[in-house]
C-alpha cells in the first residue's frame, strides 16, 4: 500500500483544470474535495465530475482521497454512493465523530459488497476540525480499522473556537499536539493543517519545520507549489 504520509494536495472537485493538473506535483496523496471547495448548489455537478475524473485520469502514482460532505449536510450519503464505487484509496470525513464514522463504515460495507470490492479496502481519514473531535480524537481514530490517519484542519477549528488564525500558529499548539499524540500512539498518519498563503514560501518552511518537530508525519497543501517545500521537511 502506498502512503500519503508526507503530503496531500487539496483540489476542488468542481474544477476540471485542477483535477487534470492534480497528479503532476508529486504529492503522496491528492484530495478531490467535494466539501469546502464546492458551493451547495454545485454539489451534484462536482460529485459527477469527480466520479468521471476518477475513471478518466491516471492517478496511479498517488493515493486518491475524496473529501465527501458530512452525513448531516444531506450530501454525504450520495457522495459515498457515487464515489465509493470508483474505488478511491480513501474517503476523507469532515466534522468527524465516532458515530458518523460508524454510519459511513456501514454504507461502505454495503457498497463494497455490491461492487465485489474486498471488504474494508476503502480507507477513511477523519478531519479533526471541531472541539468535539479534538476532545475525542483518540476515540475517533480508533473507531474503524479503515482509518489510516487523521487530518487536522485548523481553519475549521477557528469557527468552533472563535480564534484568530496566525501564520505563527501559536493558537493551534494544543490542537496540533493532541492530534499528533492520538495518531502516533496508534501508528497512524498525522497530517497537519495547510499553510494558507501559497505565495509565502518562507512562512511555509517555518510552518513545516514546526509541524515536523511536533511529530506530524506530513502536511496538507492547497497549491501544487507547496509540495516540494513540504517534501523537504517530511520523510
Amino acid at each position: 500500500m502506498r502512503q500519503y504520509r508526507k503530503s496531500i494536495l487539496f483540489v476542488s472537485g468542481n474544477s476540471p483544470k485542477m483535477l487534470q493538473d492534480a497528479p503532476v506535483f508529486g504529492s503522496d496523496g491528492i484530495v478531490l474535495d467535494l466539501e469546502e471547495a464546492v458551493a451547495p448548489e454545485e454539489k451534484d455537478s462536482a460529485r459527477l465530475l469527480v466520479k468521471e475524473a476518477l475513471r478518466f485520469f491516471d492517478y496511479s502514482d498517488m493515493d486518491v482521497i475524496v473529501r465527501i460532505n458530512s452525513l448531516s449536510s444531506g450530501f454525504g450519503e450520495k457522495d459515498i454512493e457515487l464515489i465509493a464505487r470508483e474505488r478511491p484509496f480513501a474517503l476523507m470525513v469532515p466534522k468527524a465523530s465516532a458515530e458518523q464514522i460508524a454510519q459511513i463504515e456501514n454504507k461502505l460495507d454495503q457498497v463494497e459488497k455490491e461492487e465485489g470490492i474486498p471488504a474494508g479496502s476503502i480507507k477513511l481519514i477523519p478531519v479533526i476540525e471541531t472541539a468535539y473531535a479534538l476532545q475525542y480524537v483518540h476515540q475517533i481514530v480508533t473507531s474503524s480499522p479503515r482509518i489510516t490517519g487523521a487530518f487536522l484542519n485548523a481553519e475549521g477549528l477557528t469557527a468552533d473556537f472563535g480564534m484568530q488564525r496566525t501564520k505563527e500558529g501559536e493558537e493551534i499548539l494544543y490542537a496540533r499536539s493532541r492530534v499528533v499524540v492520538a495518531c502516533r500512539a496508534e501508528k497512524l498518519n498525522a497530517i497537519d493543517t495547510p499553510f494558507m498563503d501559497s505565495d509565502d514560501y518562507e512562512g511555509l518552511e517555518k510552518d513545516c519545520y514546526k509541524a515536523r518537530n511536533m511529530g506530524f508525519t506530513g502536511k496538507a497543501a492547497i497549491d501544487g507549489r507547496q509540495i516540494d517545500t513540504i517534501h523537504r521537511f517530511f520523510s
Binding site: 476540471p16 487534470q20 451534484d44 455537478s45 459527477l48 465530475l49 466520479k51 468521471e52 475524473a53 475513471r55 478518466f56 485520469f57
Partner: peptide, 13 residues
C-alpha cells in the same frame, strides 16, 4: 477546452 470526462459530467448534471 473541456476534456471528455468533464463533458460527460456536465451533460449528466
Amino acid at each position: 477546452g473541456a476534456l471528455d470526462y468533464t463533458i460527460r459530467a456536465r451533460v449528466q448534471a
